[in-house]
Design a protein around this nucleic acid. Sequence first.
DNA 1: ACCGTTTAGTTTCCTGAGAAACCGGTTCGC
DNA 2: GCGAACCGGTTTCTCAGGAAACTAAACGGT
Lengths: 158, 158
Amino acid sequence: MTQSTDFQLADFLPYQLSITSNAVSDLISERYRSRFGLKVTEWRVMAILGDRGSHGGQLTQRDLTKATVMDKVAVNRACKVLEERGLVARVANESDGRSHLLALTGEGEAIHSEVMPTARATESELFDGFDETEVASLRAMLAKLRAKAGSLTDLSGR
Amino acid sequence: MTQSTDFQLADFLPYQLSITSNAVSDLISERYRSRFGLKVTEWRVMAILGDRGSHGGQLTQRDLTKATVMDKVAVNRACKVLEERGLVARVANESDGRSHLLALTGEGEAIHSEVMPTARATESELFDGFDETEVASLRAMLAKLRAKAGSLTDLSGR
DNA sequence: ACCGTTTAGTTTCCTGAGAAACCGGTTCGC
DNA sequence: GCGAACCGGTTTCTCAGGAAACTAAACGGT
């Protein structure tokens, strides 16, 4: 009677990927919200600024959209909030009057150096019990998938 | 000068998971939207109904929220749309006046049997080039992660 | 049988993310 | 130089998703 192809949603990998990513995101965003009052978008921007910014480079919003894979609107909003909280400073860009250069303030640096270790700690908690090779292959697969999804989207997208 | 712990957002696994999941979701939702006019939520409901429903069981919305890991509001909206399109039918539940029993209509079955193979095809396209053991370990890791994230959320969440 | 509690479903409200329109400022071709 | 196309950033609008409030039906104890 069951001549249907017996499709099981629970086995569908994109579905598993989605619900897993959601579960992880929920955990992380809740932690950063409760401890630092930061949203994921804001946290991502700080992560980039804290890493690259400390190497001497000030970044534009455009740089940040590339680095975070977020919409430029999302980046703009995150920067605005962070600026209002005094965690990042914008200075006029000498070489381009349209944009500003962003960098963490002292206070921003302070929070950054507190947030990032807890991010790593959460990552460790999550991957506790995974061995090195597993994690390495997970990274590789995610990268491959991203590339594949991107190229397939481009094909049908135009 | 760089005494910062050099946190790289790009290496952060939850971040990789998130952007990969987004890329995959975007591809899939775009395909089902353009080919069948279905949203992901609607498609998930149909997938469950098509699978379980064909085995004789009619399901309530409550069953569907469990099976799809979606909010009950999302399930309700999806069901409403599907009913209006004539793809699912609601019949009163004899044993509980609050709920309805849902099942695919003939037309729903038809679409279902067309959609599901293309879902599988997309899955195959995405995982083209991955070998069996890789995929198996990916499934296992996603399941483990989900469990871990869930338990960690519960701990801090109450 | 009756009242308080729980549960399935629905409606309403709010938040987050992206699309599109918009506003200077810049760059390129003439 | 000057106008056109382009680009970074901002504002506005739309939509999906989730939280909370609400309705109606069921259950549980008395």
